[in-house]
Amino acid sequence: MTLTRRFVMAAAGAAAMVMAAGAAQADIKIGLSSEPYPPFSSKDASGTWVGWEIDFMNALCAEMGEKCTTEEVSWDGIIPALTAKKFDAIIASMSITPERKKTIDFTDMYYNSPALIIGPKDGDKDISPEHFKGKTFGVQVSTIHSNYIDKYFKPAGAEVKTYGTEDEAKADLAAGRVDYVMGDSLTLFTYLASDAGKACCEEKGFPPDDKEILGEGVGMGIRKEDTALKEKLNKAIHALSAKGTLTEISKKWGLDGQMKLASPQ
């Protein structure tokens, strides 16, 4: 008898907890991508998020005087999660592109860095599309780099494998399952400087820019109707730039001079 009663109470308790779990409300909810993307954001061995963008986020929230909470979601679902109101703004090295602007809006650019192609250590630095005929690219799904490969290298005969996270693409480059990885230059340089990267791979070159595909820098993704939030975030981004906070953060992560930062205005 006691068993049945406990059984019923536990079930009711579980249902109540599920209902209550939806109640918490914070000032601004920031959506992060739940993958390691060093040096911008990754979880260290103590379980805390660290990186350039994490410092940027904290500085930004302090500047606005808002309390920010974070929510993680996998990269390929981050735009749907924003439109489904799971959070209010994306900080996940997301480039501002015309294609994405059809679905969501962006703040002004807060940093920009060029794309890069890396490959195995063989000294072959040819990155012309014709050279990639029959070669396989590894790339993270739903990225500007994936779109770039589709536009320039696939028609020339390259094959593409898409991964949920960039580290998986890098792991397959090290394993030899793909011949090249294309991604953001700063994350790829960080990888090349690591033990795993040093052992397998080298820089192949910067592909020619295409603003239509690669976008005009990284901004915070927000919903189209949140114009007030956009104003507020933009003001804070430019204020951080004017104060030199952005440069400080870049220095801390050894990225000073390697990335273009937001303008003071």
């Binding site: 739940s34 993958e35 990754s42 979880k43 061995a45 379980g47 993680e72 996998s74 949920g164 580290d167």
Partner: peptide, 21 residues
Amino acid sequence: SVVGGIAELSLVTKQAAGVTK
């Protein structure tokens, strides 16, 4: 873990493996 967002065992492992290789 495919959706991401909750630090349950599989996601924690995936993140740790991604960082440490």
